[in-house]
Write a protein that binds this DNA or RNA. Sequence first.
DNA 1: TCCTTCATGTAACCTGTTACATGATTCC
DNA 2: GGAATCATGTAACAGGTTACATGAAGGA
Lengths: 176, 176
Amino acid sequence: MSLRIALLGLLTAAGPASGYDLTKLFESSISNAWQARHSQIYPELNKMAADGLVTVEEEGPRGRKTYTITEEGSRELRAWLLTKAPSRLYRSEGALRAFLLPMLEPDEAVALLRAEVTAYETRLAELETIHAAKSSQKKSDFGVYALDLGLRQTRMMRDWALETADRIEEASRNRP
Amino acid sequence: MSLRIALLGLLTAAGPASGYDLTKLFESSISNAWQARHSQIYPELNKMAADGLVTVEEEGPRGRKTYTITEEGSRELRAWLLTKAPSRLYRSEGALRAFLLPMLEPDEAVALLRAEVTAYETRLAELETIHAAKSSQKKSDFGVYALDLGLRQTRMMRDWALETADRIEEASRNRP
DNA sequence: TCCTTCATGTAACCTGTTACATGATTCC
DNA sequence: GGAATCATGTAACAGGTTACATGAAGGA
């Protein structure tokens, strides 16, 4: 379901687009919240067309098909946003790792966490670049709230890793 | 892979247990980081036994099988923790919703966000209760870092929803 | 006796990833 | 002519959810 919603959202935000365009839009605009490959996108667009949520308005060179969202598609998207309670289940390899951290030696755990901090710093820098670009261009509001959420998420993870590393280090100094 | 790791982790943290026990442990201890149903856990335990990562030490009443982690299982778990770089891909229905928020009317978006705030407050209260219980009993360290992460995650989401609602409300008051 | 909990399993289905496959167009 | 990019698709597999199915043990 979520893939459908994401595609309808992108077609609303960016206007008519091909599967190829949507694959790139996925990477550049929504990858912070959801991911999908072309191998999942193409069949889904075909199903959505069969269900009347999108139409193929024109076929360009190289078999390019440009999809446009229909009235029904917009209704479906709106209904999902307004009525469907979001699943708050959270699945993360990072959190699983966090759970298992106490089974490592303190210095091993600290080394892992310091590496995580670096990775999150890098990611943060990327997101901040994107954020700066978005703020200046003022083109569309789509993505601004999700980008803010991504920034907060990344900062939170970095802070957690940093503070947890310090905590473990201090505890192991006190009783080695 | 992650399911295997989670099961090996639980067997390390809680000692020998049955599939039934592990299903409940999943819900009570690790659900913040990962979820799995019994229909996924039972077949996986059988595969893990075939691969020599766990052994069935005893069979109790009602066909109960108690699994114990093997040396090889411990090695596998350690290796995963120390060598496998965690995927930092983030997929969340909440974030997808955040992306699409600008397509709603301001008052609709604000209402959704206020409801989110309430939901996260509730979740936060639950986690804080668990946290308080864990802190006092001091039984095992397993889960403390993941629980801390869960608390930060939930607070971050609540704050984001709250501040975004305020932001949208103010913007719509200035130019209605 | 009946209900609840304990206990394990399978089957159908949906979602997502990786890899394979093909061909047109454009630019150098 | 050759490489990069545009463009669409399928197949095999892995991971996860929902529903179905069964039965033993324990307590009211």
